[in-house]
Amino acid sequence: MSTLVLVLATGVGLGALYFLVASGLSLIYGLMHVLNFAHGVFLTLGAFIGWEAAQRMGASGWAAFVVSILVGGIVGTLFATVTELALIRPLYERHIEQVLVTVGLAFAAVALFEGIWGSDPLYISGPAWLDETTSLLGARIPNVYFVLMIAATALLASLVVFLKYTRFGMIIRAGVENRAMVTALGIDVKKSFTLVFAIGGSAAGVGGVLAAHYTGYVSAHLGQGLLIFAFIVTVIGGLGSLAGAAIASVLVAVLQQLANYYLGGTGDFIVVAALAVVLLARPRGLLGRRPA
């Protein structure tokens, strides 16, 4: 029983991490039809710079942890905003080229990170509390999972509030629904393109710092490894659907952890099989909109 609880908690923690990546991907795809391959490097850069900041403040303090999260988020936001302005915007409406540019950026950035921080993982440490465990239903669950769950829930809640109750949020929702109409009404959709990139980038940057605490290290490939699962999550959840991404994140991660534990480490494989099943039975994903 306690093992099952632990496996489930690990799954939900990992799912929270997936959601931090997938939410941005899904919003960007929904609004702009851009598959952002560079999303993983936003995360990696956030993790690296966040760790540098934490190290300068003495890594084991709470202040350093909070600052590293803030720094990670800011770095992710800036990197994503610059990417949108410099690389995506000039290729307006040319989707294949936009994808290719993000692929090139990811390629170049990973190599650059390896040049700066080396190709071996950097092992990190945080406040001691994060590595301790809390007993829940007889299972000893690492505290970092709770932080991840709180972060992902906070992100989901603030995104929902932002999308529902603010003017920019409304424009984004309308843009996902029917961009041609929004443009025809004289609203500048381009601003919201930059905005979704900034939001996605900040979530990824925060996710990077937390991912580093989840895995215990930072490496140049941290983000790209997570990105593939985030892609799977967004396809299963339904492209462009935030709620779908949230549900699929948890489902995929829990399934992965269960298979890893009970079926001898076949988690990654089961996830791809689940993707195949979803595609065969329901190509638009769990909550994807029906193609007309």
């Binding site: 290719l100 540019v101 170049a108």
Partner: peptide, 18 residues
């Protein structure tokens, strides 16, 4: 940057696409 071949190739790729 100059000692990472893949960084240079990635940059070249971006320039070609753009």
């Amino acid at each position: 940057p100059l000692s990472e071949p893949l960084f240079l190739l990635g940059t070249l790729f971006i320039l070609v696409v753009m």
